[in-house]
Structure formats: structure tokens, C-alpha cells
Nucleic acid binder design. Sequence first.
DNA 1: TCCATGTTGTAGCAATGGCTACAATATATT
DNA 2: AATATATTGTAGCCATTGCTACAACATGGA
Lengths: 151, 151
Amino acid sequence: MSSTASAPAKPRPAPPRVSLLRTRKEHAQETAQDYVEMIGELIATTGEARVTDLARRLGVTHVTVNRTIQRLRRRGLVTALPYRSIFLTDAGRQLSEESRFRHQVVADFLKSLGVPAAVAYADAEGMEHHVSRETLEAFAKHLRPGRDRAG
Amino acid sequence: MSSTASAPAKPRPAPPRVSLLRTRKEHAQETAQDYVEMIGELIATTGEARVTDLARRLGVTHVTVNRTIQRLRRRGLVTALPYRSIFLTDAGRQLSEESRFRHQVVADFLKSLGVPAAVAYADAEGMEHHVSRETLEAFAKHLRPGRDRAG
DNA sequence: TCCATGTTGTAGCAATGGCTACAATATATT
DNA sequence: AATATATTGTAGCCATTGCTACAACATGGA
Ligand SMILES: [Mn+2]
Ligand SMILES: [Mn+2]
Ligand SMILES: [Mn+2]
Ligand SMILES: [Mn+2]
């Protein structure tokens, strides 16, 4: 290991740096965000959110939806009774609206850069969950350069 | 359900739309990308990539690193022998460089929008895995408006 | 009313990605 | 060389997020 030389020495193993921790925690929240966002959308467009509809729209089986809904129930984001459709709690509705807004801003921002709409929406679906408040504001600012913080 | 009226009718449950499938698949690749990227970085800066160093830098325990390395080995991204340090295969090195480049472009792009460096790097850590070729090119183009595709 | 179909729920499997506790090996210090 | 420390590996736990197969319930049509 130290005869012919080829390794550039070892200037300290370096302290912890990359926070995969944050990424992992975000993953745990991504599902919740995508579900409540879709639940809100279904309620707004069809009047109710059913397990089957969610499964179809999210591209997973009804089994997966069912169990996820139970988790969201435990987290206080939705209410659901056996064989009945799904409702958002106040917290769920709030998260739903935040997620929907952020998703839209990210997608619009990408489109404004010239990314094709379909690609922009697809990318936004994944990127949205990793966009901090600061970055979201930078995106929004870029979208409306004139105004600077009015609702 | 149809007496007092409050639900806006049901204009079809709508066909599958959102591709959580893509998001899931991307998740499956995130770990691989983050690991090979870090392995490449460790080899470049300290001469070798050890389990302990990876654990420290990624913010997980050495146990998690160990098992992940076995998975990467099966996927042909790294080679590793018991009690020896980890090496990248050709495929691993290529993925490492691609990931590193994309990570850097995303981070630089966010910084160019005025996002604080620390936040930009943190956001990029998660966003990078969901950035398509088209979006990456849009980011890169925004960074160097003059040049248009020269290496 | 009866039955077919649609919807929801449950049982049980797999892969991923965390962890603690403990064992084995390698390296460094005396 | 002997011992202490650091590193690596293994056993076994948990939660999440997928799935298929099957059971139960609800609802519309005959
Ligand atoms: Mn969304
Ligand atoms: Mn999403
Ligand atoms: Mn990265
Ligand atoms: Mn990353």
C-alpha cells in the first residue's frame, strides 16, 4: 500500500458532509405529499376520492393505496372509514394545497426554461419534493420578475 | 350521496396519469448514484474508499453501507473483497462521473438563481436524481448562455 | 330478488434501506 | 509479540413500498 506509490496520500477521512439523512426523510414525505395532492385533485374534479381511483391515477395497485391510506390516517392527514371514500383533514388539505402549489411552480419554471411540457411535468413530479422554500421562491421570482412578493 | 348536492358530479374517474412509477424507479437509482459518486470522490481525494469513510460521509452506519455495497456489486458498479477497500468498475466510474457532473450543474444552477450555496447543495442532493437530460441541458444552457454545446 | 361485477380489505411475499448488538479481522501501539 | 483500537462483517430487528391471490362487501342489471 505504500511501496510503488499511486495513492495521493490520505488527508484525513473528512467529517460527515452529505446529508443522505435529509434525502431519506424527504422520501418518507414524498408519498404523503403525492397522495394528499391527488386526493385533493380527485375531490375537486370528481367529488370524491376512492381507493380505486387513486390506484389508477398513481399507477399502483389498490392494495398499496389501501395500506398507504392507513399510514396517512395515523399521521392525521386523512380520515377514512371502511368501504367509504377518503377525506382530507385540515392538515391534509393544507399539505395538499402546498404540494399542489409547489408542484405547479416547479413545472411552470421548467417550462419557462424551454423544457417541453411533458418532460417538465414528469421532472417536477420528482423534483418538487426536494425544493426548499428558498429555491421555490427563486423559481417564483424568476417566473414573475416584476412583482416581488405580493400575493 | 345525491340528495342535497355538493359534489360536482363525476366526469369519469380519469385514466392513469401521474407516473409515480418513474419516481419509484428513480428512487431505486438514487442510492446507487449517491454511493458511486461518493466512492469516486473518496478515491480521488483520499486514495481509497473504505466502508467506514463512506458511512461517515453519507451519514449512515457501516452496516447499511456494507449491504448497499453488496447490492452495487451485484449490479456491476463496484468490486469489493472482504476487508478490502471498494473500487469502481468501468460502469461504476461512468455513473459516478455522470452523477457528479449533474449534481454540480444542478447546484451551480440554483446558486446562479441566488439560492444560498448551502441550500443549493442540499436541494441539489435530492433534485439531481429527478433531472432529465432535457432539464439538465436547460440548466447548463442558462449557466453559459454563449456557448451552445462545445465540451 | 338474485347475481354479476366492481370495489375494498386482508394475508402473505419480496426488495430496499434504516438500525443495534455482537463477532471477526486488521492495524497500530507499546 | 502482545494487546488495544479500528475496521469490517453478520444476525436479526423494523418500516416502507411494491406485488399476487383471495375474501368480503356493495351495487347495478336482469
Ligand atoms: Mn406533486
Ligand atoms: Mn411528486
Ligand atoms: Mn449527488
Ligand atoms: Mn443525491
